[in-house]
Structures are given as C-alpha cells and as structure tokens.
Design a protein around this nucleic acid. Structure first.
Length: 244
DNA sequence: GCGACAG
DNA sequence: ATCTTGTCGC
C-alpha cells in the first residue's frame, strides 16, 4: 500500500498544527458499504531518551476480517523524526508506518490504529491522519484519555459511553469509551477516516476476542517487539481449536 | 497563571 | 513510549 496524498513531515510544531487544520475538512465520516475483507493493526515503538538519537520501529499486521487469522507481518525502522508533543503524535509515528505499509503486498480494507482518531482538539488524531494519507478506513483505539469529557461505562463487555467536546455549540460527540471485555479498563474509540462511531464500535467489538486490546492492535504491539507471523499463526490455531 | 497532556 | 519486581486476583 502506498500513500495517496503524502505531504511534508519535517515541520515545526506550529506548522504541524496548521496542517492539521488544513486536512481536517478532508475527513470523511462515513464508512464504506461493504464489510472489510482484510483488517490491519499497526503499532510504533521508540527507543532512546533524546528523540534526536532515538529509533522508531513500526509493525503492521494483516488479518482476515472474518476469522482474524494473521496473514502478513511487515516491520520498518528509522530515526525518530519528531519529538513527542501531545496533539502531534502523527508527525512522530506516521513516517515509519508509511515505510512499513509500502512493503505490504495486500491492500487492506480497514486499519485499527494505536491512538485516537476524531477525539482530538483539531479532530485529526493519528488514526484520522493515517487514514487520509493512505485513503483507507481507520479506527482510533487508544488505551488512555486524551481529550473530551466522558463517564465510565458499565462493567459488562460491549458497554460504552460517549466522549463529547463541551466547548462546541451543541456539544459534539467525538468518540466513545468502550468496555471491550468485562471488568477491564475501558478503551477510547473514535472514527478515523472513512468511518463513523457506531461502525467503529462494531468493528472493535468483533475484533475483541477475550483481551482488553482488540486483536489487531494487540498483535501489532507484539510484532513491534519482535514476534513473527509464524508465532502469531501458531497462537491463532491454538485459540481457534480451543474455542470449538 | 494553572492543570492536562494519545504514544 | 520507556525505565522496572514482585504480587494480588480470576
């Protein structure tokens, strides 16, 4: 998969925020009609104390949507191009992700990103930004709160509450806090590009197979740490056999 | 000015 | 994100 609308990434924080405002109106908050065939999970890890000497490592894992069988794993590595700045995570993590995506032999239908999407001060979290660049449906799936107000959902799996921005004229619904599994810490879900909230929640629940993190994100995190496709496939076969 | 702040 | 050990509970 290659970028369909790439742009410069070596920007100052101020320029980066301006670019986010420029890209914002290009977001499509409507999902495709047909169900996805291939879903990908992505994750980035950064090593090193000072970002100018740090290395970014990315992993992209592709699954068959219907069975969640892992089909392909690609990784990439490069010097960290940007420091961590709240609100500008995409400028730190997307460059190495694009390098990984270019190695993919398949065109995926859906990408689940480790971070927020529409839940963002300028509605352009990393999931939304990546979706725009690749022109692919994306979902933001974050482990912690970043922006907006919300209440804790009930303990049952599938329970959720809305995340709203109270500063808008009427308060805008940005995403949802979702209990992916009973009695675990909830996840922060929001649409990225070519997606809406209700469909995003359905996809995340479908991909949540007994762990707090949905399978694509959980596996991508493991692969960024060195796990191979062969190991993922062995795990999948064991889990599939045990589930029958 | 103060607190919050994805990964 | 990363630095880090053992420990409580289903």
């Amino acid at each position: 998969m290659k970028p369909k609308a790439n742009h410069r990434w070596d920007l100052t924080p101020r320029e980066a925020r301006q670019l986010q405002e420029t890209l914002r109106p290009q977001l499509v908050l409507k999902p495709p009609r047909q169900h996805p065939q291939l879903v990908a999970g992505v994750d980035v890890s950064v090593t090193g104390p000072r970002w100018r000497e740090a290395t970014s490592k990315a992993a992209v894992v592709v699954f068959d949507y219907a069975t969640l069988e892992p089909l392909e794993v690609v990784t990439a590595s490069m010097p960290s191009p940007f420091p961590y700045v709240p609100g500008l995570l995409s400028f730190r993590e997307i460059p190495v992700l694009l390098t990984a995506f270019q190695q993919l032999t398949r065109e995926v239908d859906l990408v689940m990103v480790d971070g927020h999407g529409y839940v963002h001060p300028r509605r352009l979290g990393i999931a939304a930004h990546l979706g725009l660049v690749l022109d692919v449906p994306t979902i933001g799936c974050a482990k912690t709160h970043f922006f907006g107000q919300w209440d804790e959902p009930a303990e049952a799996a599938g329970s959720y509450t809305e995340i709203v921005d109270p500063s808008t004229k009427p308060p805008e619904v940005l995403g949802a806090v979702l209990r992916t599994r009973e009695s675990v810490k909830s996840m922060f879900i929001s649409p990225g590009h070519r997606m809406n909230l209700s469909t995003a929640l359905e996809h995340v629940m479908w991909c949540s197979t007994g762990y707090r993190l949905p399978e694509p994100t959980r596996r991508a995190h493991q692969c960024a740490a060195g796990k191979t496709l062969e190991e993922l496939h062995t795990d999948w076969q064991r889990a599939t056999a045990h589930h029958k």
